[in-house]
Design a protein around this nucleic acid. Sequence first.
DNA 1: AATTCATGATACATATGATGTTACATGATA
DNA 2: TATCATGTAACATCATATGTATCATGAATT
Lengths: 141, 141
Amino acid sequence: MRTDNRLSRVLHALLHLQDLDGPATSEQIGMMLNTNAAVVRRTMGGLREAGFVASVKGHGGGWTLARPLDQITLLALYDALGEPSLFAVGRSEDAPGCQLEQAANAALSSALDAARARFRQELSEVTVADLRDRTAPGFSV
Amino acid sequence: MRTDNRLSRVLHALLHLQDLDGPATSEQIGMMLNTNAAVVRRTMGGLREAGFVASVKGHGGGWTLARPLDQITLLALYDALGEPSLFAVGRSEDAPGCQLEQAANAALSSALDAARARFRQELSEVTVADLRDRTAPGFSV
DNA sequence: AATTCATGATACATATGATGTTACATGATA
DNA sequence: TATCATGTAACATCATATGTATCATGAATT
């Protein structure tokens, strides 16, 4: 199944943004992410609304960081993207009235909820700045 | 995104199987699950190979439990299904050589791994028999 | 032995949703 | 006014879980 790569992509994009002087255009970011400018606009839109980046139209415009990376947790980004559905495994809805199916779904949901909580906890403990620190010493674009 | 419902479905099917006397045909199970007999065969095939159910061809044939439900954990079923890919969110592979993307992916993978471990732990602590116990008292098909 | 039932296996169709792509309106700078 | 860049919408592509159809094989019934 094709996975949703937006979180990874915006992380990648934000890390690049910090290494740049001025604003980066969607086109430029698209080159870094090996994708289309329209995809960049669509994906970064959520981050703008959440106040993590700013976008400016016209000449010299583009995307800039609106907040230091050490004040952006991965969880905040995930939520800014609309909290994309996390799982490729889910409940069945074959026989909603059947108690046996309900029991099966309840157990599955319970496990998925626990996994989701763990995922969110992990994301909440890391900032984007932490990721930059984890690249090789002296590394720059 | 369309989710993989196989685990929920086989749980549902096993619970029904226990409530039946003889073997159940794929056709019958398909009715319970509101799906096709071929889908049932395909899905249950993994459980047969893992020794949780047995299938018999021909007249009076069908599917039967090969082991008491209290000896089948949800995790064992999940693995018998081939450990279906759990997440709808994943790494990007836009610029494999880029250290920044690598750092982003490493953090994401770490969170996903933790979530997967939690999911598997939850599944390992519940047997199919436990689910049956959770239906309303006196409930039967 | 022939018939019927049921699984086993394969191939193909369908549906869904993330991503890719194109096009154009809007706003900002030169 | 021309150019650049975002904002937005519509549509195309692609991957894949599930649905569907078909036939070979094996087992019980007659």
